[in-house]
């Protein structure tokens, strides 16, 4: 759900073969990062449908997909990220 997606604005290749949903997603995350949940909500699509569309676009190189960080493992990466979250919240 909180997997993030960023459009690849290089504009290479033809978009002729892509449907309206793909174009809508491309415009939503053009130059900015959006989560799967945000894209689904803004397009009024169920999460699962948005997930499939984005996977197609990722396969075609139209978007970059970034997995969220999991905090289930007690590793240093998670701790460092938690510290970033904490200082970010304090700055708000």
């Amino acid at each position: 759900m909180e997997t993030t997606v960023r459009g690849r604005s290089a504009g290479t290749g033809s978009r002729g073969g892509h449907g309206r949903e793909h174009q809508h997603i491309a415009s939503l995350c053009d130059g900015k990062v959006q989560s799967l949940a945000e894209i689904a909500a803004r397009m009024k699509l169920p999460l699962g449908v948005a997930r499939v569309l984005i996977a197609d676009m990722a396969a075609d190189g139209l978007v970059a997909v970034y997995e969220p960080t999991s905090f289930e493992n007690n590793d240093a990466v998670g701790t460092e990220l938690l510290e970033r979250v904490l200082s970010g919240l304090r700055r708000l």
Binding site: M1, S35, A37, P46, G88, L89
Partner: peptide, 21 residues
């Protein structure tokens, strides 16, 4: 079954986004 949830977003820094579900 279909369930709906509300969520918001806080950009912690340029490369880290916090979502509240």
């Amino acid at each position: 079954t279909t369930v709906a949830m509300d969520f918001g977003r806080i950009s912690i820094d340029r490369d880290l986004i916090l979502y509240l579900f």
